[in-house]
Nucleic acid binder design. Structure first.
Lengths: 251, 251
DNA sequence: CGATCTGTTGAAGTGAGTCAATAGTGGTGG
DNA sequence: CCACCACTATTGACTCACTTCAACAGATCG
């Protein structure tokens, strides 16, 4: 079954309970032994409020390339990523795509703006999600300042990240975009190895480039010894300082 | 006195009480008769809390081209725009600029992310601001869920706007960028006339283009009858539907 | 009424895009 | 286990939208 069919099927079903996503069996209090709780928004909740969140959550799994939500659909569900990686993107009628972010374990999808999703979300890898019904979540949010405080914090961080990305898209060269991207993908500050769960096209759609330019630029950076490609989805940063300078536009 | 000098002076003084900004004399309760209160975040406050906000606010005026805050400075002040227009921007070491937003009456500057401003702000026109000391404001915020709720709302709206702008910067042509920009500058949905308080360079720095491309593209849109330039800072949208199609990429 | 800034227009250059061929890569079934 | 297939990534040749460099025109203001 080609991906396009999966996607069109998914676009028809507005509900994440669709046959495409697998409901995960969980205990009555699934949140208590959650592996990503510590790094997720839900860690601000305790006691009663935590119990309320646990009560409305459902676990759900998506396969690689499955659409989780589609822009334009009714925003009835909110998500938290338990495992895997997700892309968030906007599309244009002629097929142009702008990916606005990649998310992974512990990230919250859908600080809601309106009743309609402004973005699509798709699984880059097999993904496990916590799903919250919008209504119940909003009710909890209204009664729980600590939760709102935490989401406000997340929203501010997202605004800052979005503005950094605007600078990248508006003013950086392809080399600078790739350097910035690779440095951002470093999770631990000490690491030098990166795993890229996304394809070249997805990197291109994130950086406002084409697949070919991404590939050529990575090859050039390799030739110049700044990085090493240790597999098509693995990169080692060989000269972090020069990459930092490049990313900042000092080169 | 050239602009560059004003800016470098301003960058030395981290405090908006600097000689460059004029302190506005105000009554003991300046907020009560505020013209922009209805459209500002402060409208959510009442009674006691409103009084507390009034107590910490100071009025301040900036001339055209004055720097209000500079990225990298300590984020000790928050602002609300009472009159005039402001640009928010990020810069690169070699002088490249990306404007991330234009703000006007009623807009709040500085949903704070860290202790350091991530952006610079400069007056496009003569500007009057409410200035709040960060500490006092944060204290009020911590004790007033309604305020936080409102700012959360603003932050969410900003995230959505930022993502729209990423699509523009990453994937739209110069024509599409200008069409999108002009439609966004329409304040009332029924209007067709736009006043642009910013220069061609500033439009370019917002849209990720050069001044020349902005000028040429506006000329082309005029030649094609989509807009009319009724002064270098005034535009009339002659064919809104075609502009909308263009902005959406359906053309 | 010149000086200065901002905006427009023209000509030439270029970084990234497009189109196309080739080379890896991973999954599947014989 | 390998051979094939389908897909993804790389590389090359060429094109083009936007930039750069430069001249000119209009506005604004002492």
């Amino acid at each position: 079954m080609p991906v396009s069919e999966i996607m069109s099927e998914s676009s028809q079903s507005k509900d994440p309970t669709s046959f495409l996503s697998r409901r995960l069996s969980r205990s009555a209090s699934p949140c208590e032994q959650c592996a990503v709780r510590a790094q997720s928004f839900c860690s601000v909740l305790e006691g009663q409020e935590f119990a309320r969140l646990s009560a409305i959550v459902t676990g759900r799994a998506f396969a690689r390339h499955q659409t989780i939500v589609q822009e334009g659909d009714r925003a009835d569900w909110l998500f938290n990523i338990v495992a895997g990686a997700v892309k968030l993107y906007r599309t244009m009628p002629d097929g142009r795509v702008q990916i606005v972010g990649f998310l992974s374990e512990g990230d919250f999808v859908g600080i809601p703006v309106s009743d309609i999703y402004a973005l699509s979300a798709e699984a880059l890898t097999p993904v496990e999600l916590c799903v919250f019904p919008r209504r119940s979540f909003d009710r909890l949010l209204a009664e729980c300042p600590a939760l709102e405080h935490r989401l406000f914090d997340l929203a501010r961080t997202e605004v800052a990240a979005a503005r950094d990305h605007m600078l990248l898209l508006g003013r950086k060269s392809a080399r600078e975009r790739l350097a910035t991207f690779l440095l951002n993908e470093l999770r631990q500050p000490e690491a030098i190895d990166i795993f890229l769960p996304m394809s070249r096209i997805e990197i291109a759609d994130y950086l406002g480039l084409t697949m070919e330019t991404v590939s050529r630029t990575l090859s050039a950076l390799t030739r110049q010894g700044l990085i090493a490609l240790t597999g098509s989805d693995r990169v080692r940063l060989m000269q972090i300082d020069r990459l930092r300078a490049l990313a900042a536009g000092e080169d």
